[in-house]
Each structure stands twice: as C-alpha cells, then as structure tokens.
Design a protein around this nucleic acid. Structure first.
Lengths: 124, 124
DNA sequence: CGGTATCCAAAAGGATACTG
DNA sequence: CAGTATCCTTTTGGATACCG
C-alpha cells in the first residue's frame, strides 16, 4: 500500500477511507466502539460508562459512527424516550481491530515508557 | 477490557497507553508509520512521499514517535545534514496494526458508503 | 431521557522567516 | 538539508440553555 492512497485529493476532502479511519480512532470513537463490544448501551448509560464526555461529543460521535454503518441506533417510541445503541456487523469488525491496537499499546506500554525515559535523559 | 482502563484520570493527563494510541493513529502518525513500513526515509523524502504535510507537523510527529520508541532517528554528521528515519521493532509492530486497520477501512469502504447513502436518504 | 443550538476557550495545524 | 521560532487561522471540544 502506497501512502499516496491515503493522501488528500487536492484542497478538498481527503480520501474517504482515511475519514473512516479517523472516525473509528477518534478520541471518543475508540471508547464507544470498545464499550459497545461488550453489550448494547443506552445513551446516558454509555455516557456514564465512558465518563467525562460531554453530551455534545457523545452525540456527535454516535451519529458519525451510525452514518458510517458501524453503530445501530434503536429509538423506542416511549415516554420518557429510550434509545439503545449497539454495534452492527461492520462495527464489530472495526471495534475488534481498534481493540487489538488498544491492547497492543497496553501490552507494550512498558517498552514505550523505557524508550521515553532514555529519550528524555539523553536530552537532559 | 473495561473502558474505565481508558478514561482520563482526573483533570490531568489521560492514561498513558491512550496517549500512545493517539500518537500512532494521529493524522500524520498513521501515514508516517505506513510509509516507513516500506523502507527507511530521509526527512525531505518522507515529506514528499506523504505530501501536503508541513515541516512543523512532520517534525513534531517524528519526534513524538521517536520518543515513544517507535521510530529510529539516524542523524549523520555530514554537510549538508542527512537524517534517516526508520521503524524500530516496536514501531514495526505498531505500524502493522495500523496498516491492518487502514486496510480494513479500504476493504469495507463500499459497505460504509452504502450505509451513508441509506442514512442520508432516510433524512432527506 | 435524549437530544439540539449557541457561544466561547483551547488545541491543532499551517505559512513564513530564520538557523546551523 | 533538516530543522526551530513565531504568528495566525482553523478545528475541536466543553458549558450552558433549551426542546420534544
């Protein structure tokens, strides 16, 4: 794969799959996907589970992922409103890849930490 | 894995592995890692290969990845200066994961595109 | 409850000029 | 060539208020 496949195509939008990659690896996208890998969640429930995410950002993240076909939104016509979010088949694939990367960073955190110390020390 | 493992730890920095994840999935981090998976590059060469990245951002990205122990920087003491960048063993592991995610988005782009059309249509 | 709309602060990112 | 320093624009994200 050449990086040229991932470049911006002019002064406009970058290539479409690059955008999907940004959605799933975004600050809140990662957390939403990993959490939904466990089970479906309601909006507020998801918000509490993730913690420290504003309504606005959670809404925005969920809408983006829904539009990309990764998350399924099930709004029940009841009062008070109840909306359940879950992963689609496509979303599950993405979430598993993201979790893989996330687990890798956990496993290798020690090495990264050592590298940082060496780096900082060499400059002090 | 609970998302709580990935949450911010107060009003300060988020957990360390979350930061590494952000480095490798950042806009330019992704492109640098994938490109270096091919072969080592000089600074300007890498800049041309990626395209449309400012010197500042490429420098910043490379320094971050070097500090995390993912990229090796080899500055030759010659005039004019020559600096080669390559992946470390750790960096290669990260790059392969990132490439995996990148390739997934390419493979599934059709499904994503269809989902978006359905989504947009349902709201029009 | 599950959002939307608006405003504002903070951070990312680019252009330019300069340096060893 | 491979950066650093500075300035400025754009984007991101949070707080708040309001709505069905």
């Amino acid at each position: 794969m050449a990086v040229s496949d991932w470049q911006s195509d002019g002064d406009e939008a970058m290539c479409p799959h690059r955008l999907v990659l940004e959605h799933v690896t975004s600050r809140w996208g990662v957390l939403v996907l990993i959490e939904l890998l466990e089970r479906p969640y309601r909006f507020s429930e998801l918000r509490r589970a993730i913690g420290r995410v504003s309504e606005k950002m959670l809404t925005q993240t969920l809408q983006t992922l829904e539009r990309d076909g990764l998350v399924h939104r099930d709004a029940k016509p009841v009062i008070p409103p109840r909306v359940d979010y879950s992963l689609t088949g496509l979303g599950r694939e993405a979430a598993e890849q993201v979790r893989g990367l996330a687990l890798w960073t956990q496993r290798r955190m020690d090495d990264v930490h050592k590298a940082r110390q060496a780096y900082d020390e060499a400059r002090a």
